[in-house]
Every structure is written in C-alpha cells, then in structure tokens.
Amino acid sequence: MKNISPDIKKFIKLPDVKKRVIKLSDKTIKTTQTANLFLADVGDFFLFLFRTTIEAFSREFEFQEFLRQCYQIGNKTLPLISVTGIVIGLVLTIQSRPVLVDFGAVSMLPGMVAVSIIREMGPVVTGLICAGRIGSGMGAELGSMKVTEQIDAMEVSSTNPIRFLVVTRVLAATLMIPLLVLYADALGIMGSWAGANIKGDVPFVLFFSQAFRYIGFMDLLPAVIKTFFFGAAIGFVGCYKGYTAGRGTESVGKAATSAVVLSSLLVIIIDLIAVQITDML
C-alpha cells in the first residue's frame, strides 16, 4: 500500500467501491460453484455412460426385460406415431402441391414428398415425439423407483439395476425407434397419396412407382443409421435423468422434464451432425 497514491487510496476507501468489490467476489464464488456443479454433472453423465456400456456387454443379459421394454416402447408409441406419420405426409402434399402446379412439376410431387419424409421429416419428427413420449416415461418411471427405494431394493436383492433397468431400456429404444421411424415413413407416404387424391385422382401404383423412382439407397441408409443414435440418446438420457433423480417426489417431475428437454436437443444435434456427414459423402 506504500507505493499507492493517496488519490487511489481514497478511491478504495469509498463505500460504494467496497460494495462493488464484495458483489463481484460473491458473483465469482457463485459462478465457480455453478461451474463445479456443471462439471460434476458432466462427469456423472460420462461415468453413467461408461457403466451402462460395460453392463451392456455383460454375459447375464436380461433378455425378458429387454423384450418387455421393446413391447412397451412399441405399443405405447404406435398410435401417436401412426397419426403423426399420416399427418406429415398429408400436410406436406397439400402444402407443396400449389407450388409444384405453378412450376408445372406436379408429377414430381410423390418423389419430393417421399424423399423429404424418408431423409428428414420422418426421422426427426418421430425422434422428437419419442423423446417426449419415451424419454419422459423412462425419466418418470426410474425417478419414482429411485424415490420409493425400489432401485435400492433391487440392488440388495443381488440384481444389478444398471443391467436390469438401464441397459434393457437403452437397447430397446435403440432397436425400436428405427422401426417406428420406418413405420412412420411408410404411413407418411400413404398420407401423401391420400393428400394427392384430395384434388385429383392418382392411382396407388402410379403414386408409389413415382415416389420410389426418386429414392436411392443413400437416401435410406444414413436416415436409418441416425435413428439408431436417436434411440440410444433418448433411452440413455431418459434413464440417466430418472436414475440420478433426487430423493423427493418433486425430483420425479424434474427428471421427466429434463429428460424430454435434453433428449429432444440431442435428437436435433445428432440430426445436424448426420446431415453434415451425409453431405460430405
């Protein structure tokens, strides 16, 4: 303090400056704590991912539970996916038709709609619906199991809860979501055919032969591959959020909500990455 000029000393003694310094230090501490919590969360997430991956390759695979989960995911989501698939095809056709009529390219309508549905609309919309339906379901189910000590009960009865609850759900979602996407794609094209018949008479065979003329192997393959990643992300995030839920009932709701938010975000990010990779091929 000896070398500091008297003017600066006066400035430092000002109460307003002191207050600001205290505020700044408080903010720094809070930010550091938030950053620590965030890093701890990221660490937990990857640790959970590591444990799940290890358990997925375990010899004692819970096959019955895996089949039950496949049935649950497929059965619960099928009605929603059916309606969505048909509506996507119908709406896309009705909206695109006037523009294509203006350009005199209405004969390209089936191909355009089919390519849009198979490459992008089918996988992404189905992925987002599954994130909402399956992600929240898993988050809430495992969260409530955690709150009511069911996961602890499983652990003390010599059952590995990660293997029984998490691995089966993640694998079931990884397998079922691509199947649901293919189903939604098929219904979407059917919906498109229905849409094309609102203002005209397009035979079924003609519509489908036109639609499949424009679909190549490279339209289908990347779209199917990315849906496996959608499924894994949705299943994993749902299980992670539920499994790491807090102890109170409030945490069940939080787990379900954050599962939907994070898995939807991941679906969009994975899609973005997949599009970039496909574009490079």
Binding site: M145, T148, E149, Q150, D152, M154, V156
Partner: peptide, 13 residues
C-alpha cells in the same frame, strides 16, 4: 441379508 425398506419398496409394475 434381507432388507425391509421403510417405504416397502415393492415393484409397482
């Protein structure tokens, strides 16, 4: 070891 939990912890499903 058998463990009886406070909440019972029966599997709901």
């Amino acid at each position: 070891i058998g463990f009886l939990f406070q909440s019972g912890a029966l599997y709901d499903s």
